[in-house]
Amino acid sequence: MRALNIIFKLCVIIFVLGYVSNEYLIPEYTYYTNKSEYMKLTLKCAHAMDSNWYIEQQQNGALKKSSELQLLDCHDYDKLRKLMLSRGISEYRLSALGLVALEIHQKPAEELAKHHKFRER
């Protein structure tokens, strides 16, 4: 009977440790170890998307090819995002981190607006 009691307590301890590590420790460790890389890739992907949109409006085939290469940064961003999601970090937390990255490294309004100005009518 005593051995059964010890086995039960060990199972409960192992379950609690596994639950706590899976729900709290692993997500927090993943978040803090990948936070700066995620912010860097968020910026690279955002800039690549902006550049790609602007170049798509042009009629230059060589520029379109080079802009497609820039979009590889978005692939790295997407891989890291999925890894972090699979490790238990919420979509909301990643979105907030992405917004912080974009706010820290904001472009001036003139630079953002120049892509959207009419070139011809």
Rank of each mutant, 00 (worst) to 15 (best):
L63Q: 03
P108Y: 09
K79P: 01
N52D: 02
L17P: 06
K9G: 06
S51R: 11
G61C: 03
S95L: 13
S90H: 07
R81G: 08
W53C: 04
T33I: 00
K65Q: 09
M49W: 01
C74M: 09
N60V: 10
R81F: 13
R119A: 15
I14R: 00
S51A: 14
D73N: 15
K9I: 06
L83T: 13
Y54M: 06
A113K: 04
T42L: 01
A101H: 10
H75R: 15
H115P: 00
L80D: 05
V100T: 12
H47E: 14
R121A: 02
R119D: 14
D50Y: 08
M84P: 02
Q59Y: 11
Y38E: 10
K117T: 09
F118I: 11
Y77E: 13
K65N: 05
L80I: 01
H115Y: 14
D50Q: 10
D76E: 15
V20M: 11
S66T: 01
S66N: 04
K40P: 06
Q57L: 12
N34V: 05
A48G: 03
R87A: 08
V12G: 05
L69T: 08
M1A: 10
I6S: 01
K107N: 09
L99F: 09
G98C: 07
R93F: 02
F15I: 06
A3Y: 04
K9W: 08
T33G: 02
L112V: 07
K9T: 09
N5F: 13
D73R: 13
I14G: 00
H116Y: 15
N5I: 14
Q57I: 03
L83R: 14
L71N: 06
I89Y: 10
L17Q: 09
L102N: 07
I26C: 07
K35V: 10
L102Q: 07
D50N: 12
Q59T: 13
I55C: 05
A101R: 08
S36L: 13
M1I: 03
V12L: 11
F8G: 07
I104V: 15
Y54H: 09
I26A: 07
R87P: 01
T33S: 05
Q57V: 00
Q70F: 02
L97A: 01
S67F: 02
G18E: 15
K107F: 12
D76T: 08
Q70I: 03
E23H: 11
G61L: 06
D76N: 09
W53V: 12
L99N: 14
L69D: 14
L80C: 01
V20N: 11
E28H: 12
L94D: 03
Y54A: 13
Q106A: 12
K82Y: 13
P27I: 01
A62P: 00
A48N: 01
E56R: 14
I14L: 06
L4I: 04
S95K: 04
P108E: 15
N5L: 13
F8V: 08
E68D: 14
R119S: 15
Y24K: 13
K114I: 15
Y77W: 12
E110P: 00
I14W: 04
M49S: 09
D78Q: 03
N52W: 02
L80F: 05
L4V: 04
A3R: 01
G88D: 03
